[in-house]
Design a binder for these strands. Structure first.
Lengths: 200, 200, 200, 200
DNA sequence: ACTTAACCGAGACGGTACGTCGAGTCTTTCT
DNA sequence: AGAAAGACTCGACGTACCGTCTCGGTTAAGT
């Protein structure tokens, strides 16, 4: 449907090889040395590309990193089973996996800190996590349709709590032990345990 | 007989004025330009102090920033009322206030990213939030003593979720609307609303 | 019957317009910004031509500049009167005028410095000044034929002294006052004034 | 006699070693690769000094080169014998030697071209040649006192012609053959040879 | 009073990376 | 085949901060 196929095809076309090599090099260096020790010169060297070429396409180190991280993120499709607890747990675990993925985990704090400067941190986090947010939303909606929970759940908030709490762990440098997801799910589904019969 | 009080007190004593001026300048510049655009030279200039003096007492820019942030944080004493919901809400609000405090909000992401490098991010966050964690713990314990909730609540996790979810908001640059605490408390105390009668 | 007109005339013929526009743009930019701040990209833009076209015909910036300067130099025809002093003075003045011509004066030091690298500075200078050297040579020869001076004058040296002394003035940025030629001629024709009767 | 001994001795004193090493490295690289291929980065590397230190003291490559060339120039004292031709010849030869000195000869065209941009080329040339100009002036004055020539000789012009004509040779890349000075002196002292009895 | 040791201000230094600029080459499509 | 557009490599530029290092001068506690 889009009508711009002709566009402007004059001039030497952008080298797809260079483009890919740059993103790839960025991703690898990111996991090896982390964001702050990541240098544009190093990326250029590793990608076999000149610094100028990098700056032609990305205005800044953080912009490049953002795209590299995005390009390396897999959608993580989760097939809902119909059991609320199981599905939420899987969704939470998917976020854990996303953060734990080498490049992301190593780089996220640094990049995000850089992006906070221009207020675009949200975009990156959103780009990274929106599949998970959508999955969570669907799970919650389905459960509500089944009558297991009410329809008034704030999915947005729920996702934010999950994403935030886990990101916090990344910052603290704590290993993502296998039970994190389990415990978090318990808290979120049941509220403070043992609490019952108390009117709100 | 404590031993080290004598030490060797000869020589010019440390200038308390310079010390205070440095922390003050750091705090102000932090809120004005943010962590990444904060320069040691700028701090020295603003404090009317030489760079040497700064580096004599703090090994790095981040160490100085950490102390400055700490020095500017007020303990935030909350008097528990005995009502669980009210008290938790107040505790959460205290964390919100802590993050929202000018210097902290502006600087936290940057400093934390720096500290993540050496794995000391936890210390800063902990130094900043441990009063709140303690307060939360006491609130929860009291409620358990009153029988309102079980004794098996993981306070640590609870605090982490609160601190993380709110920090996430700071990163996103969202204003801390007045209801954040309210909503968060709702989720944490009750779990997914409308849920009942389902065995764990 | 010259033979090469046939050559191989396939393909699109060279655009004479582009060629002229490039030389013209070069000349103008040369007088406006000087040689070092002259850029090939700037020339291309001003000539409404692509960089490729420039490099197709000239191997380097300096080569282009050389041709531009040459193309802008007028032969400077001097009609000898038969009076030695008058004619030499006119010849010297012609060199002064050549140097003073806008583009040349502004650009010469820079281009020459570039050409010195490959030892081709002589070619440019020669191309620029050989009409004047020839004129000078003819004047001197005529005078010798008339018996006014000996036949053993080293015209080459004479021309070099004139060209060099005046070029030096260009370098110093001194205005070419009207009397330069006069004074120089005096020195060259008479030697140190007032000197007489001293055997060589 | 100067009274400023106190000056301002605060702060770390400038490293004389670094200063000397920089000038030395500049001089050597100049003779090895020439001015245009001379880079500040290369100088820094060779001098074992950081680029910053160079830029702290010299605003530009040309300024540094100027000082380096100056620092490497020896006064070249010539003892006048009392014979005009001999002394002038020696003076001219001194200029030849000055130009021929490795660093100067290799670099002069480039530096001068750079300096022409800001109109300070004269300063360098003057700094380099003023001892020779003074020597020439004295020789001419002495000869006039002895009555060999008139008192109205324009020494300035004479020096300019010598300096210019020889510089021109440098530009052309011609070797400074041993007779250059001889021939030049002949022309300057006698005017066009064979010419006599012609009233000015 | 007089050391003496630790402080402080000033500022030069090495180092690392930044983002920019220009020369010259190469690769397309259009004419 | 020539021309236009423009992506590309290479090399150097000048700047900014970091954290280190000397200096000269200052200020108390000890003798």
């Amino acid at each position: 449907m889009s009508t711009d196929p002709a566009e402007d095809r004059r001039g030497r076309p952008r080298s797809t090889h260079a483009h890919a090599a740059i993103l790839d090099a960025t991703l690898h260096l990111l996991t090896e040395v982390g964001y702050t020790r990541l240098t544009v010169e190093g990326i250029a060297a590793r990608a076999g590309v000149s610094k100028t070429t990098i700056y032609r396409w990305w205005p800044t180190k953080s912009a490049l990193t953002v795209e590299a991280i995005r390009s390396g993120s897999t959608p993580a499709p989760v097939e809902p089973t119909g059991d609320l607890r199981t599905d939420v747990r899987a969704a939470v675990q998917a976020v854990v996996d996303c953060y734990a993925r080498s490049a992301v985990g190593a780089a996220l704090p640094g990049v995000v800190a850089d992006l906070v400067q221009d207020g675009t941190a949200g975009e990156l986090l959103d780009a990274l996590l929106h599949p998970h947010r959508d999955a969570l939303q669907r799970i919650v909606r389905d459960a509500a349709d089944r009558g297991e929970i009410g329809h008034d759940v704030d999915t947005e908030l729920l996702h934010e709590v999950v994403a935030g709490a886990l990101f916090y762990r990344v910052l603290l440098g704590r290993r993502m032990s296998g039970d994190v997801a389990e415990e978090l799910v318990g808290l979120l589904l049941d509220g403070l345990p043992g609490r019952r019969g108390v009117p709100r």
